[in-house]
Nucleic acid binder design. Structure first.
Lengths: 222, 222
DNA sequence: ACTGCCGGTTTTGTATACAACTGCGGCACT
DNA sequence: AGTGCCGCAGTTGTATACAAAACCGGCAGT
């Protein structure tokens, strides 16, 4: 494996798992030494992460881990809504019914049916749904954008982990999306997705009580 | 200005203006010599263009100008629909009425009113509309995605240039979008945008008669 | 004649040396 | 005391040397 790929993966993982906190400065020399490679592959890794939006470059080209904020997550979800409602709409028109039949049954099954720890199961199924939708739409532009988006979302997952009530609700929302896609109902699939995203955002915002009352998604309060 | 920035700009312009045709191989050494810089900035430029999707990397990491095809433009427009309908929807809720009033009047004015050659005027106004929408939504995720998208669209513009009837029709469609945004009617703004995109796609496809009958946007026939 | 291996050539990948720039601290001047 | 300039330290930007890997051709063996 190439050094630039490992550098990219390690940096991305560190950012997503909050080992590198938002705002952390990523000097090329320092990062290169930390990862045990030279500046060249670090540069490439930072370049890719900057394109994805996980790293931001301030004045003078200093790279730092992108900040998070209530305004940011709201903007992220506006973007997410654009992509995922379209994805659901298209998937409803092109899905392989066998695949979504399988998904539907797994969502209906009781916990533990597929040898997964119960706590991880909702995330596991959600990932499978994402994969199935990606495969169904088969549009590299859209799928690529969705992949980058998921990197950002993973950073906020940490905040939303803790609520079992929400987890069960999310599973029901996912099931509805699967059923709409299975029925070939594009409009319902898109709207069920929009509902799910709304609830999901509310849940994330509720984990940051101090900031959730921000009235309007104003321009980024970096 | 930095060498990597000029390399990026020159490559991007060359690709958009078809000086570099789709499929052209972009060897690092050759490109570096052509642009009069070393491989390092060329690498960064190619990296950025690859992230944008204007350059694709085949097996063995060889870079080449991304291909175009009927399937590709259809996929691009699915992605575009996701982004631009959401952009119009949000803009209707947040627009500065003065800005869109100004736009509306310019769309209604006769040709030549703003010292532009008549042929360029529709493109000029369309760009202004894009800028106004970007400013209104103020969402870096969405605006960034729209910017990259426009690079791709510019490549297809060349095919659509020639039809004055379509140009006039497009201007009317734009006017409707402006008026919907101005009225704060998010739903109408999104739907008017969808209509415009549909017509625009039809127009592009009609310029490639041999391929337009392709029944379904199947997986990219590279 | 075809297939698979092997070596050379050319490419990309990485490391590093050097140049240019940025930001900061201290100093002098007002 | 405040402000602006200057120089230094540390950073990023670029070029280039070298390493590794992929691609192509020819050759030999079947």
């Amino acid at each position: 494996m190439r050094a630039s790929d490992t550098a990219y993966q390690r940096l991305k993982d560190d950012i997503i798992q909050w080992h590198l906190e938002p705002g952390t400065l990523l000097g090329e020399i320092e990062t290169a030494q930390r990862l045990g490679v030279s500046r060249t592959p670090v540069r490439e890794a930072l370049s890719r992460l900057t394109a994805e939006g996980l790293v931001a470059t301030g004045s003078g080209r200093t790279a730092m881990v992108a900040l998070v904020s209530t305004a940011d997550v709201m903007q992220l979800f506006e973007y997410r809504e654009a992509l995922e409602t379209q994805a659901a709409r298209l998937a409803a028109g092109r899905r392989d019914t066998a695949v979504f039949e399988g998904l539907r049954e797994r969502f209906l099954e009781g916990p533990g049916a597929d040898h997964k720890p119960q706590a991880e199961r909702p995330y596991f199924l959600a990932d499978k749904l994402d994969e199935a939708i990606d495969a169904a739409i088969g549009n590299p532009y859209l799928v690529g954008a969705l992949r980058d988006l998921r990197g950002h979302l993973a950073r906020y997952r940490r905040n939303a982990h803790t609520n079992p009530v929400r987890l069960e609700q999310a599973t029901r929302e996912h099931l509805l999306i699967v059923e709409a896609i299975l029925a070939g109902n594009a409009t319902l699939a898109a709207q069920a997705t929009a509902v799910h995203l709304h609830q999901s955002l509310q849940n994330i915002l509720s984990t940051v009580p101090a900031l959730q009352r921000e009235p309007e998604p104003t321009v980024a309060a970096v």
